[in-house]
Nucleic acid binder design. Sequence first.
DNA 1: TTGTAAGCGTTATCAC
DNA 2: GTGATAACGCTTACAA
Lengths: 346, 346
Amino acid sequence: MRVKSSGTGKVTSSEVARAAGVSRTTVSFVLNDKPGSNISAETRARVLEAARQLDYVPDANARNLATGKTRTIALAVHKPSPHAFADTYLSSVLSGLVRKAKEAGFRIVLELTEEDSEVSTLAALVRSGAVDGLIATGWQGEEPFEEVGLSANDPVLLLSEWPFERFSNISVDLVGAQRKIVNAALAAGHRQFGCIPYVPFKESVSEKRRFEDFKNQLASAGAELLPGCVEAGDLTVESGRLAMRRILEAPVRPSVVFGMNDTMAIGAIKAAQGAGISVPEDISVIGFEGQAITEYLDPPISTVKIPWIDLGEKAAEIMLHKLRNPEAEQSRLSIGSELQLRRSLI
Amino acid sequence: MRVKSSGTGKVTSSEVARAAGVSRTTVSFVLNDKPGSNISAETRARVLEAARQLDYVPDANARNLATGKTRTIALAVHKPSPHAFADTYLSSVLSGLVRKAKEAGFRIVLELTEEDSEVSTLAALVRSGAVDGLIATGWQGEEPFEEVGLSANDPVLLLSEWPFERFSNISVDLVGAQRKIVNAALAAGHRQFGCIPYVPFKESVSEKRRFEDFKNQLASAGAELLPGCVEAGDLTVESGRLAMRRILEAPVRPSVVFGMNDTMAIGAIKAAQGAGISVPEDISVIGFEGQAITEYLDPPISTVKIPWIDLGEKAAEIMLHKLRNPEAEQSRLSIGSELQLRRSLI
DNA sequence: TTGTAAGCGTTATCAC
DNA sequence: GTGATAACGCTTACAA
């Protein structure tokens, strides 16, 4: 029962209580504006004044332990490190997410993972109570989460590329978005395609999915992916440039090249121009993602815009809802995309 | 002394201890690989096995409370919200920071502030023990931090635009960087300048500082900032475009326009081209910041590259060092920049 | 309206 | 080598 009076240490609520001549309970009630507790205005003022005078700051960890909450949400990004920030999507998603979370008094902590095995780190994050909720992106299925014992009842939201069955998730229909832009090329009369996929397009479930769908789409439209015209890149402009150079050496030159992200499409255009081939007169180029900059290049790039900011906002909303209603149903949302036709495609 | 056996609740270290037939202390020692504690291999194995079987995950908040540490560092970005993510600098800094922090087992939490008064939130973050350290960027002086009672002894690192006196800080010499690019324009023979500053260039200490220095630099080189040729923008391409349009209506057309960030410089170029004025033949444009994309525009933009990723890494290193050596001296570091001359300037 | 006391789940200090 | 036991600082029934 001894009340510790730390010499140099932090001010605790006990000290505030003593200074105000009340109990710790009262201090807690006043400082947290506890509803339903009728504290006299006079007492309340005394507590507030004491807290101010002592420059009291409640200990966050003690509070977290006592309440079992942290008002923190983790955004876990799963991606081979060097590429994690190469695209604009992360900062856009963060932008929407952080703002919405802040409005609700929540904080965002960023967690980067590279290995699939690190999913256990994410589970621990939730289980240990380090965060109240987890928003994970970049995974190619929900199985890894189930294997580490997480379930739909846990405060987990997956941002995925197609609807997931069991966990709450927001899916961005990348395949559908891709179809739009490819379709635009087909509609423009193109039948001979080249393509710059993202390097792991043969291993990664989602990249493979996009690539296969692309091939199918071409096939059913009577178009073809020319031999020697599939050259992968690592999402950077430079890799797009190199890929395009190789494509231009193929026996037959494609009439259009699909850069599977905008950044590589930019490189592709530069490579063509560098080789004296004009875009779109000699060859068309289409991109993917809708980065703002695509509009300002020469030529402006045709692409599909993925509303990343919107995604971030929605993610925050769904997670916050989930935290407030732990018993709520699994929620699913699908996010659309917007075709942006510009001069790089004719 | 009662050992609680929660029905459905979390597994605690007590339960692990009971299952392994040891005390909680032993469990703690084993799980934390406590050095200097001689646990028999046999006991150790039993504990580990029990923990595994029960799927035990230590409670993060309890641990934080007991140790007084969280292994978390806050990155606080102070900026009017809409612009916080408009530039690439945030994701670049984050990129370097997160990676380095992760290597050391630290996590990054993102904190956005808009009002100067929110500095008290940041102080509370440190004081409350919610984070071990604070890296703050976007502030125009150290006074706000002192006013809320923080001092150089606290685990605070400020990323600033000029060396600070009292807090540890990493400064990026934006003024010096700017001089480099402006100097390049002067060296190219330009004497009649236009300029697109960031909107708060009359209020914000740092923006004003850059703007004034720019004017002085011109003056001492016998160059002039033409009347009607200073039009502010909000960092976006579109604002740069609008600003340039107004500049082109000025009585005398400048021979070079300085976009005080790359994004606005891009807009400026588009506006000129849209008005049938070619860059750089009719008018030169120079940018600032060194975004990767500047290299791929038409014409490629002359700019100065600020090594944001490097900054993030250095920030992590300094903060980690500070956390390991709380008594260490204030550390100061200044980060340079790299002139990138390209076709937009002749 | 205010106070007492029981947690919350660790880690850390000492005895044994 | 291992085990009690006391912090850590707060929240919150429940009692008064």
